[in-house]
Design a protein around this nucleic acid. Sequence first.
DNA 1: TAAAAACATACTACTGTGATAGGAATTGTA
DNA 2: TACAATTCCTATCACAGTAGTATGTTTTTA
Lengths: 146, 146
Amino acid sequence: MRLTARSEYGLLALVEIAAGGESPRSARELSERWKIPAKFLEQLLAALKRAGVVRAVRGARGGYVLASPAAEISVLAVVEALEGPIAPSMCARESGGCVQSTHCAAGAVWGRVSDAVRDVLSSATLADLAGDQLRLDAVSPTDEER
Amino acid sequence: MRLTARSEYGLLALVEIAAGGESPRSARELSERWKIPAKFLEQLLAALKRAGVVRAVRGARGGYVLASPAAEISVLAVVEALEGPIAPSMCARESGGCVQSTHCAAGAVWGRVSDAVRDVLSSATLADLAGDQLRLDAVSPTDEER
DNA sequence: TAAAAACATACTACTGTGATAGGAATTGTA
DNA sequence: TACAATTCCTATCACAGTAGTATGTTTTTA
């Protein structure tokens, strides 16, 4: 299991898209706001589109919009779209179960770890984060907003 | 944050060492029991020794022994010795906090994730796992034990 | 003295991450 | 209709980390 910059960047962008409502946000706009390499962000948004998290609007004045209401998109869905399934180790990753031929006690711990992570990630939605972000922006506005 | 084969292998070996009590288990013995590449395991045990988890007994009939009672060694200590600190993303990894100049709502989620993982890992000890393993071995013994 | 073991160090193959590059297709707007 | 803004597509790359392998050296017991 791993959490990398892909999730970090992706979530930042999606919170911004969620705040935009119906009007699409372009990859360039998002990359400037959050200092994310533009071309890299394009790839992340493509992955999120493939996963059905966002919808793309092509052409001038286009960009990305959420494919469903922000309250129905969990952080887990975002992370799994960008990083693959949440599985903590070799033991839990293999569909056939443990690599070890004999049963090992450690496997149960790995299972509890991934359950805990999935629990945290699935309990937060983009709507929650967009709300939090609004409050944070009110306290310390960014350059663009000042 | 990542959980790799290092933790997997390391835990398997430590559970076995814990079961051995005062008599040292050699790296070779452990590597054969759990099908872990011998030289790779030596490196892991060296890291665990540096972290103060195990004590080494050099020379013939030597091996490794736990440095403290099994009930006082948490899985978290083992994982951190082998993988480095549990931090879920760039945001939480940097000592200075978030990479973003502006505050981001996503950071709170990453924090909750690492807290949850640490919670699971620190709530299990080597003594717990050694007990579980004993029970598993009783049900389906390994080749060596048959 | 010989074997068994830890200890040390260096090397290698492979994979994933975090990009960068260059264009092609699509679409609103002047 | 031209143009600019945008998504879309594919390829490439540098770097770091993982999972080993290799070759010894030191220490200790039998």
